[in-house]
Amino acid sequence: MAEKLLHIEDLHVEVEGKEILKGLNLSLDKGEIHAIMGPNGSGKSTLAYVLTGRPGYEVTAGKVLYNGEDILDLEPNERAQRGIFLAFQYPTEVPGVSVVNFLRTAYNSIHPDEPKSAMAFRMYLQEKVDLLEIPTELVDRYVNQGFSGGEKKRNEILQMAVLRPELAILDETDSGLDIDALKHVSSGVNKLASPEVGILMITHYQRLLNYIRPSTVHVLMGGRVVRSGGFELAEKLEAEGYAGIAKEIGLSEEEVAEVEGQRV
């Protein structure tokens, strides 16, 4: 049997000495789209960061295999070169570095076998810009500097479209988007989706899932995946919130209180 694109087993992660992920399991195959939902602070972004190698996220137990390879000791750029991409929940501003220059450097790092000249890259980038209906002037501005919240999210999807990852992790890319932007972003993601690509979408809203249909929905709570199911699971959460599941899985009173009242 072919290796899973992503296989996470019993993953424990600490941040500044505090355990955030407490035995998380998750597997994703090429061609699949999975959604991860969970209350604020449950560790969704932590999972995204640990998969991409952000410093400060310490794996204390468990393993992460990407196409069968243990990636936990790889530098962030080495993971990206293998095809992992994260659309950040809070994209970073990099002063003085233009989007176009940044992306060309990134592209040539990830696709060294097909490097593009400045001119060729410019045309390639323009195609993606048109596809996502992003204002052209954005790519000549400094990375995320002075971008509106929605522009930052769209810039993440632009980067995804340009870099053509094999595993795309979208961390709340839908938050803060107006309805038109959400449609553009969704169509960008749907264009990337193929039998060769896996997508992991972190979201709070069923709204996104109406545009990008997940094959699986996971609920992340207390540092673990506590429920997995089909689209109906997202609908149930939208209707009932997290408290029901929290009780069902036997979280402590305190933990239940913490998620109680949190909207999906």
Partner: peptide, 11 residues
């Protein structure tokens, strides 16, 4: 900043 750039494949 470094992490963001490196997460895009840049050494």
């Amino acid at each position: 900043h470094l992490f963001y750039l490196m997460s895009r494949g840049i050494d």
